[in-house]
């Protein structure tokens, strides 16, 4: 019982962290039809920034600064690497994203010297707590709550504000919304800013559970979060969140069994099955091909 609770708890917390990354994927895909391969690396860079900032600044200063810098990074990546390719074929943009991911990983290797960096232990989040007899960290409890709050705020933003309406319009039809006077570039920038902000929050929660960060730490969580986004129906935010929780729990259960080598393989097998059986995912919109 205690074991089951602890596995379930860690699955839910992992799922929440994936959800925060998956939202970034799904929003960018919804608007640009681009798989932002660099998103997982932005997540990793956010973690590294926290390591370096907290070494010299108090937590109250380093945490907001980390969020701000990550947002800035997301903004700069979009402006430098994706905006010049707006009219290029989709494959070029995807390749550019892969290039950015490669660059961020190499940059991180250069700055850290390839050594694993200790993640600072955050007050409160890293402290232990016992739930139903299963010892865990506070972060496990905080994550789902925080995720739900952030997602509610995000849906409000998208459904109630002007910029949210612009986002929905751009996601529906890129060119027509441009003709209607929507400033496409600023809408896309806002999308990347939101995505990077959520990834930064996610990285804080995720890396608290792990002792250290290496330059490749972002790649796998990024891919899993992407699978979650596809699972839920890419372009749909509630879908991404539900998909992420399911994948987090599945991963946690498999990691706790004898089949732990296959945790990633299972995630990707799930992806392939979903893509073949229901390519639009759980909540995705059905795309119609125009000839």
């Amino acid at each position: 019982m205690q074991y089951a609770v602890s596995i379930l708890l860690s699955g839910i917390s992992l799922g929440g962290q994936y959800a925060l990354i998956a939202i970034g994927y799904t929003m960018v895909y919804g608007i640009l039809r681009l798989i932002n391969f660099a998103h997982g690396d932005v997540f990793m860079v956010a973690g590294l920034m926290m390591v370096y900032l907290s070494a010299s600044l108090p937590l109250m200063a380093s945490l907001p600064l980390m969020l701000l810098l990550t947002v800035l990074l997301g903004f700069v990546i979009e402006r430098a690497a994706y905006k010049p390719l707006r009219s290029a074929p989709r494959m070029s943009v995807m390749i550019s994203a892969i290039g950015v991911s490669y660059l961020l990983q190499n940059l991180a290797t250069y700055i850290t010297g390839g050594l694993p960096q200790m993640y600072p232990s955050l007050p409160f989040l890293s402290e232990s707590v016992t739930i139903l007899g299963a010892p865990t960290k506070w972060v496990t409890v905080v994550t789902p709550v925080l995720v739900i709050l952030l997602v509610l705020a995000l849906t409000q933003l998208i459904n109630r504000t002007k910029v949210g309406m612009a986002m929905r319009a751009v996601a529906k039809d890129f060119e027509t919304s441009q003709l209607m006077g929507i400033k496409i570039n600023s809408v896309i920038s806002v999308t990347f800013i939101i995505g990077s902000f959520l990834a930064a929050v996610g990285s804080m929660l995720y890396f608290t559970n792990y002792p250290s960060i290496v330059p490749l730490s972002g790649a796998l969580p990024g891919l899993r979060a992407f699978v979650a986004a596809v699972f839920g129906g890419i372009g749909s935010i509630p879908g991404a969140v539900i998909g992420a929780f399911l994948i987090g729990i599945c991963e946690s259960v498999i990691k706790g069994s004898d089949w732990s080598v296959f945790s990633d393989a299972f995630t990707f097998a799930l992806l392939i099955v979903i893509l073949v059986v229901k390519p639009t995912g759980l909540f995705g919109e059905k795309a119609t091909d125009k000839v």
């Binding site: 798989i35 989709r90 596809v230 995630t267 097998a269 992806l271 893509l275």
Partner: peptide, 16 residues
């Protein structure tokens, strides 16, 4: 599968 979905599925296959 079409374009990016094919890319992701084959990527996943490599990992499996």
């Amino acid at each position: 599968l079409k374009s990016d979905y094919l890319a992701i599925a084959t990527l996943g296959f490599g990992e499996i």
